[in-house]
Computed example of a mutant assay.
Amino acid sequence: MRIFWAALVIFVLDQASKLAVVFGLNLREVGYIDIWPPYLTFRMAWNKGVNFGLFAHNSDVMRWVLIVVSLAITAWVWRWVSRSKQTKMAQISAGILIGGALGNVIDRLVYGAVADFLNMSCCGLENPYAFNVADIAIFAGAAGLVLFAADSKGKARKTP
């Protein structure tokens, strides 16, 4: 049940942030809004690939391949965590990852691409890439699974 609630919270946060920024602030037309330059700007990017636009093809086939792969990974993570004896933190991490993945799947279904809008730069280095709440959740959820998942015997890993 923890997986479901964590996934739902992340999914709602992701979709609400996209609606508020991309459509509410009309970033899709404006393209760029300084929030706290250079540390945080909203920069519109329609990502047709995976992270950093990798495998971005304009073909509809790639869009559906990415949707199917995302759904397959989501189903596998849900099944693995649900069927094995996982820690509370591993269950929450799985939900966070799943919520982020489903947020990006919805974007691909509805818009044909993922709506990315967060851009952060620092220390004289300009980051050309944009990301979204779902991307953060996918990364954090995967990291949480690495850190908190129990081994095959159901024992939590010892952390230093």
Rank of each mutant, 00 (worst) to 15 (best):
F4V: 02
A6W: 13
A7Q: 10
A7C: 00
L8T: 08
S17Q: 01
V21G: 02
F23C: 04
G24T: 05
R28S: 09
E29G: 08
I33H: 12
W36L: 15
R43S: 03
M44K: 00
M44S: 03
W46Y: 14
L54D: 07
L54M: 15
L54P: 12
N58A: 01
N58C: 08
L66I: 13
S70Y: 09
S70A: 04
L71E: 09
L71C: 06
L71D: 06
I73D: 03
A75C: 01
A75K: 07
W76C: 05
R79I: 11
S82Q: 06
S82E: 08
Q86F: 15
Q86E: 00
K88V: 11
I92F: 15
S93L: 03
S93N: 05
A94I: 13
I98H: 12
G103S: 09
G112K: 04
A113H: 08
F117S: 02
M120D: 01
L125D: 04
A130S: 10
N132D: 06
V133M: 05
I136H: 02
A137N: 08
I138P: 10
A142K: 14
F148D: 01
F148L: 14
D151M: 03
S152K: 15
G154M: 01
G154L: 11
A156Q: 05
T159Q: 15
